[in-house]
């Protein structure tokens, strides 16, 4: 279980971005985090992944405070895909997915052997094996995110934190990527926490959702209890109609 307890965070002397976030995500689940721009979703992900240190409160990973864990140990348990993950220079797809193995390598160890097998499996898992030799920079947006996901899979962590993975993708690519995430969750039990601001995709994808506004979690629970016209009006200021049975969200007015 990954758990945030009363997490507060601010960037330097700026105003607080997180104002006491409590969140519990059980192993083997997918938790969607929705909320308007600037509500602290990405910052929360940073705290959960251990790269941002809360000013107050704690983040517990299977009961252990991430503050007391070494970066390398942490990176074997939690992987993160930040927004706009891009790479300088012309690394090939395979070279980038191999980076997911770095936390598992010894000092002088190279990418062969057991690592190669893991990388291949991750590549084929997302359907990227056939372009594994191409330069990442030449790929389409959808292909790039598949490769990024493969990098996460190659890291073989228990938890994966994804920050708006479908942000720059067209509808088909978005659906494909979300299906891949669901499948990895089902088949391997990989726990996902996915930040997303597209409510329609969120409704279609997540069973459990946390809704954030201004540094706090306003509502958390099953999608049918969180993605309601009331909460959405309260958080996003938009009137909607939601049909959970058919998975339809319609904007009114």
């Amino acid at each position: 279980m990954i758990e945030a307890r009363d997490v507060h965070f601010s960037y330097g002397p700026g105003p607080p971005v997180l104002k006491g976030v409590d969140l519990k995500v059980e192993r083997g689940t997918i938790m969607g985090i929705v909320g308007p721009n600037g509500c602290g979703k990405s910052t929360l992900l940073g705290c959960l992944g251990g790269v941002r240190r809360p000013d107050r409160g704690r983040v517990l990973l299977d009961g252990k405070d991430v503050r007391h864990m070494r970066r390398r140990d942490l990176s074997r348990i939690v992987s993160t895909l930040p927004q706009d993950a891009s790479y300088g220079f012309d690394y090939t797809v395979e070279e980038i997915v191999s980076m997911g193995r770095y936390p598992h390598m010894n000092w002088l160890e190279m990418s062969g052997g057991v690592h190669k097998g893991v990388v291949r499996r991750a590549l084929s898992g997302v359907g990227a094996l056939q372009f594994s030799g191409r330069a990442f920079s030449e790929l389409s947006g959808g292909e790039k995110q598949k490769v990024n996901l493969a990098r996460i899979l190659a890291q073989e962590t228990d938890y994966a934190l994804l920050d708006e993975p479908t942000r720059d993708l067209d509808l088909k690519s978005s659906l494909d990527l979300l299906d891949l995430i669901k499948r990895e969750n089902m088949e391997r039990g990989l726990t996902f926490i996915v930040v997303m601001h597209d409510l329609m995709l969120a409704l279609r994808t997540f069973k459990e959702i946390a809704m954030m506004k201004a540094g706090r979690i306003k509502a958390i629970g099953g999608a049918d209890s969180v993605l309601t016209p009331g909460w959405i009006k309260d958080t996003f200021g938009v009137d909607v109609e939601v049909d959970h049975h058919n998975g339809v969200l319609r904007i009114l007015g």
């Binding site: 790269v51 970066r71 390398r72 930040p82 993950a85």
Partner: peptide
């Protein structure tokens, strides 16, 4: 090369 953020997530 993937940015300092990703480097941290990769255990650096």
């Amino acid at each position: 090369a993937a940015g300092e953020g990703v480097a941290a997530h990769l255990g650096v």
